[in-house]
């Protein structure tokens, strides 16, 4: 006799968020990217409806990356100094469907680029590249408020995903996302309650819940991954149990965390038993990414094309 498969049925599904707008939708993208909409936990396609696959965004900087290890830099060749070329390479050579632009050059301690400069850069990028984009600030609250507002305006109508709003600094960014029709990243420090509070505060201002993506702040493999994992899992279970203010898709900054770890960076000379450095970094980033896919990540922001390829294969393999 066949064993009956028990199926978990949840009340709520995750919001769908669409990034990018085509010409008909008032933008200039050739395609859009949609995430969310799942009715159950990842991989459980037998019991849950999982309409959209997780997406991987290539991380691009507006300046030459500061702390990337050489092995990682090398794979992009000489284009890193020119972000427009870099972006084009990702799309053309690595088949990127989503880009994540980090405006690190705006930081007062880096090049301190002005909002106008960054807005101009975004405009150029949007003209040259036709995939949807994510725009991240430099991490300095005051500067980001000015820069991201200018960029949001420059990208008006393109339905970008812009971040990050935090509970200490969310009003300006959210207001300009409302005005210019973008989605927002709500970042919280590995804390399910702050994540929820921030979602409420953002929706209270008037941005609808289906335009919010949560960044729960993750850690790389070996650097607190389990903690972030359990926070995401709890948030998801809360969402499926009916908590609409937790039902936002997740974005995870995988590359940023993985390539900070000693295991991804250390040379083989320093640690002969650890094996070849390039392969190690790729595996580290891919493993971190795959772990967070299982926790429920919807968008992974990653750096190494080969790591990205491995994760793509994984996503296809499990048909999620």
């Amino acid at each position: 006799m066949a064993i009956e498969q028990l199926k978990e049925c949840w009340q709520t599904k995750i919001n769908t968020v669409t990034i990018g707008a085509t010409a008909e939708q008032g933008g200039s993208r050739l395609h859009t990217v949609t995430v969310g909409g799942q009715t159950g936990l990842p991989f459980l396609s037998a019991e849950a409806e999982i309409p959209y696959k997780p997406q991987i965004a290539f991380e691009i900087w507006d300046i030459l990356p500061l702390d990337w290890p050489e092995d990682l830099m090398r794979v992009y060749g000489g284009c890193l100094a020119n972000p427009l070329e870099w972006a084009e390479k990702c799309v053309e050579d690595f088949n990127a469907g989503l880009l994540c632009i980090r405006l690190q050059g705006a930081h007062p301690e880096n090049e301190n680029r002005t909002p106008e400069q960054e807005a101009h850069f975004i405009q150029q990028l949007l003209r040259q590249i036709k995939v949807p984009i994510i725009i991240l600030g430099c991490g300095d609250d005051e500067k980001d408020n000015a820069v991201l507002c200018a960029c949001a305006e420059a990208a008006k109508g393109e339905r970008c995903l812009i971040g990050s709003a935090s509970s200490n600094n969310y009003k300006t960014l959210v207001a300009s996302c409302i005005a210019d029709g973008h989605n927002v990243i709500a970042q919280s420090p590995i804390d399910i309650n702050i994540a929820k509070q921030l979602n409420i505060l953002i929706t209270d201002i008037g941005l609808s819940a289906d335009r919010i993506v949560m960044d729960p702040t993750v850690g790389a493999l070996g650097y607190g991954l389990e903690y972030a994992y359990s926070i995401m899992e709890r948030a998801r279970l809360a969402a499926f149990s009916g908590d609409k203010m937790m039902a936002m898709p997740f974005i995870c900054m995988i590359g940023q965390e993985a390539w900070r770890s000693k295991e991804a960076r250390a040379s083989q000379q320093d640690f002969p038993t650890w094996g070849e450095a390039t392969a190690r970094g790729i595996i580290w980033e891919a493993t971190t990414a795959v772990s967070f896919l299982q926790a429920g990540a919807d968008i992974l922001v990653m750096r190494h094309p080969q790591a990205i390829e491995k994760v793509r294969q994984y996503i296809e393999l499990f048909n999620i």
């Binding site: 309650n193 929820k196 009916g242 908590d243 203010m245």
Partner: peptide
């Protein structure tokens, strides 16, 4: 406790 650290609560339902 954490969920109640909001006005009136994080769970408006």
């Amino acid at each position: 406790y954490m969920a109640a650290l909001f006005f009136p609560h994080t769970d408006l339902e």
